[in-house]
Amino acid sequence: MTADLISRARAGDGDAFRELTEPHRRELQVHCYRMLGSLQDAEDALQDALLAAWQGLAGYEGRASIRTWLYRIATTRCLNARRAAGRRPARAWNIPGVEPPEPTRLGEIVWLEPYPDALLDPAPLGPEARYEQTEAISLAFVTALQALPPRQLAVLVLRDVLGFPAGEVAAMLDSTVDSVTSALKRARAGLRGRRPTPGGSPAGAAVVTRFVRAYEAADVDALLALLTDDVFMSMPPMPLEYQGRDPVGRFCAAIFGAGRRFDLVPTRANGQPAFGAYLRTPSGARTGTGLITVTLDGERICALSRFEGSVLPFFGLPPSLPGPGRAASLPAPGRAASLPGPGRAASLPGPGRF
Rank of each mutant, 00 (worst) to 15 (best):
L5S: 06
L5V: 13
L5Y: 15
S7K: 12
A11D: 15
D13Q: 04
G14R: 08
D15Y: 09
A16G: 12
L20F: 13
T21L: 04
Q29N: 14
V30F: 11
L39H: 10
D41H: 12
D41T: 03
A42G: 10
E43I: 07
L46A: 11
D48K: 07
Q55M: 10
G56Y: 03
G56T: 10
G62A: 05
G62H: 05
R63V: 13
T68C: 09
L70M: 05
I73S: 02
A81Y: 03
R82Y: 03
A84Y: 02
G86E: 14
P89L: 02
P89G: 05
A90H: 00
R91H: 05
N94I: 06
P96D: 13
E99V: 12
E102I: 01
E102G: 04
P103L: 00
T104P: 01
T104S: 15
T104L: 03
G107T: 02
E108I: 05
I109D: 06
P114T: 03
Y115T: 02
D117Y: 01
L119A: 06
A123C: 08
A123H: 15
L125D: 15
G126P: 03
E128T: 12
R130Y: 08
Y131D: 04
E132N: 03
E132P: 03
S138V: 09
L139T: 13
L139N: 09
F141M: 06
L145K: 07
A147Y: 10
P149F: 14
L153P: 00
L156M: 08
V157W: 04
L158G: 06
V161H: 02
G163P: 01
G163Q: 03
A166T: 12
G167E: 12
V169P: 07
A170V: 02
A171Q: 13
V177S: 07
D178W: 08
V180C: 03
K185G: 10
R188V: 12
A189E: 15
R192I: 05
G193D: 13
P196K: 07
T197G: 05
P198D: 02
G199K: 08
A203D: 10
G204A: 00
V207W: 12
V208H: 04
V208A: 11
R213S: 08
A214S: 11
Y215E: 07
D219R: 10
A222S: 07
A225M: 07
L227I: 05
L227F: 14
D230G: 01
M233Y: 15
S234V: 01
S234Y: 02
P236T: 00
L240T: 00
Y242H: 04
Y242D: 05
F256M: 05
G257Y: 01
G259C: 09
R260M: 12
L264P: 01
A269S: 13
Q272P: 00
F275M: 00
A277E: 08
A277H: 00
A277N: 04
L279K: 04
T281Y: 04
G288W: 04
T289M: 13
G290Y: 09
G290R: 09
T293C: 10
T293G: 07
D297V: 01
G309H: 15
P313D: 11
P313H: 08
F314V: 01
G316T: 00
S320L: 10
P324R: 13
G325N: 10
S329T: 10
L330N: 06
L330T: 11
R335G: 00
R335A: 11
L339I: 02
P342S: 14
R344Y: 09
R344N: 03
